[in-house]
């Protein structure tokens, strides 16, 4: 087990390197460099050259990348082009807000997807199933920022039940979590439904019923245990999407997380912040993937990591 985890961690290093090289190259392709953004409208060619030199951007790209990488290996994420503050503390201090949003969105998604998915599969082609499928389709096709704005208009503006922005009170997380979790709920619900439908055809369930077990036990204990595996895979794959979604949702709800912070910094071409954020997100996704693989073993006794 420990060896397996170590091996996976080792593999993750390769992934991280690949991702950073890719993004570092992509950032260079964005038109309008950091110097132009710092100097604004009055930028002259001469001033741009001076600022580029001050920021070390006049060095060859591979030198810039290796320099960045070497510093990151020593735990130095550099300082922001924008406000000269060290990046890592600013990113880490925003991490809890983003993780909170992520967990809440996941909770919303599971809370909605699992019961509806099960009901949909068990009562296949019933009214309930159809409503459930329409709901899933809506979830997948409505953009999350739009759901967010609708929620704000209804629950913050008209009903005044929830705050429209910020993280001052714990109720602030409700709307962003719903907006973010809704799309994932749709995808998960469809996954639960189809995967459960497949399992329901299996012979071992007939055996279970023949033994006289109640339908509740048959579905929740015997069928779900097998049906949940593809769902876990989907969750793991969706975490990346969810993290990407935080950028938009945090902006809509002025949520003080890492996504909004980095979105603003991206507009300013603050390369060190973009790279730092990327690093943290990539590490997070890698770790969550390893955890998912470990969860397989928990649910499926046939899987053993040794």
């Amino acid at each position: 087990m420990a060896r397996y985890i170590l091996r996976r961690l080792f593999q993750s290093i390769g992934v991280l390197l690949g991702v950073t090289i890719l993004v570092f190259s992509l950032v260079q392709l964005i038109p309008g460099g950091p110097a132009l953004m710092i100097l604004g409208e009055d930028a002259t060619a001469e001033q741009i050259a001076i600022v580029n030199h001050n920021l070390g951007l006049d060095r060859p790209l591979h030198v810039q990348y290796l320099d960045w990488l070497w510093k990151v290996c020593r735990g130095d994420f550099g300082t922001s082009f924008q406000d000269s503050r060290p990046i890592l503390p600013d990113l880490l201090s925003r991490m809890p807000a983003t993780l909170e949003l992520l967990a809440a969105a996941m909770f919303v998604a599971l809370l909605v997807a699992i019961p509806i998915g099960i009901a949909s599969a068990v009562k296949r082609n019933s009214l309930l199933d159809n409503v459930g499928r329409v709901f899933a389709l809506l979830g997948v096709s409505m953009p999350s920022f739009w759901i967010g704005l609708l929620l704000i208009l209804v629950f913050a503006k008209d009903l005044r039940w929830l705050p429209s922005a910020g993280r001052e009170s714990w109720t602030g997380v409700i709307m962003p979590a719903i907006a973010l979790g809704f799309a994932m709920a749709g995808i998960l619900m469809r996954m639960v439904r189809s995967s459960l439908l497949e399992v329901l055809r299996e012979d071992y369930l007939k055996t279970a019923r023949a033994k006289g077990l109640s339908e509740k036990v048959v579905i929740l204990k015997h069928a779900m245990r097998n049906a949940i595996l593809p769902v876990i895979t989907t969750i793991a794959l969706q975490v990346g999407n969810l993290l990407g979604g935080t950028v938009v949702i945090e902006t809509v709800f002025a949520w003080p997380g890492i996504g909004r912070f980095c979105y603003m910094r991206m507009l300013q071409r603050d390369i060190p912040t973009i790279m730092g954020n990327l690093m943290l997100y990539a590490i997070l996704v890698c770790v969550l993937n390893i955890i998912t693989d470990l969860l397989y073993a928990l649910f499926d006794p046939r899987i053993r990591y040794s």
Binding site: A156, K157, A165, V252, A254
Partner: peptide, 18 residues
């Protein structure tokens, strides 16, 4: 000063007294 980038969110925050 609490920056709110999205115009709708900012308006609602004003209307609701936040």
């Amino acid at each position: 000063l609490k920056p709110i980038g999205e115009a709708t969110t900012r308006l609602v925050a004003l209307e609701t007294g936040t």
